[in-house]
Amino acid sequence: MSTLSGDGTGQRLRAEAVTLGYDKRVISEDLTLAVPDGSFTVIVGANGCGKSTLLRGLARLLKPRSGAVHLDGQAIQRYSSKEVARRLGLLPQAQVAPDGITVADLVARGRYPHQSLLRQWTRDDEEAVREALAATDIGDLAERLVDELSGGQRQRVWLAMALAQRTEILLLDEPTTYLDIAHQVEVLDLCERLRTERGYTLVAVLHDLNLACRYATHLVAMKDGGVVAEGSPADVITEELVEDVYGLACRVVPDPECGTPLVIPRKNVSTTPSAPSEEETR
């Protein structure tokens, strides 16, 4: 839970006492967070609690008013934009695919931070794109137009673009929004594989608490722009915490599938609680 300032080992990405906000509105004040290397860090919290703002801060999209985000032992503002993009990938919440772009073409744009005026397209670029297409299992779609794809396929294309960037740290802002449950699991499985097989460090904002508990190795609960608890899902997710963060009365039972915490909202009408066999309620 505590992070020592100046301790750079094992934490390539850290936010040190950052104050984040837009225009005159302050969202987070004096927030400190260290992302453990090789972790799947998931940030949860109610709508508007500052999850995405924190992610934008970590990705250098938002400049902190005070404090600093450190990447590899240096304030992130001191790197060039392209250098940041070579170390850290980002999957933003809302993306726009240009008109008439093919999947391969869009994924290839992930190579931009590695290219220069003279070296615009090398073997490495080609290889990275092929690998990203294969990893997200969209090789078959390479020549299709992005506009024609389903939501789940499209999300994998954007993920492939971030993978083609070949950064070991990947920030994902609600990567499962608009996806049905099967596609949500598919995207998160892919993230899990990236972590275990390739040693990626992932930071994701997720809305689904139960999926967050299942996949996170490090869970961060936020409320009113601050971190209220962090640690392993089993330590963080308690009935009290969910009540505090979401204002929701619930039961927390072990997930019959993985043993991770499963949050089950209580019924408004006080009846005898039903057996903990029901699935996902949202």
Partner: peptide
Amino acid sequence: PADPAGPSGRGAGAVDLGVRS
């Protein structure tokens, strides 16, 4: 699915990217 296409891109996932280096 995590199987990379291979360094020369001649693996099972070899696709035409529409550009040549």
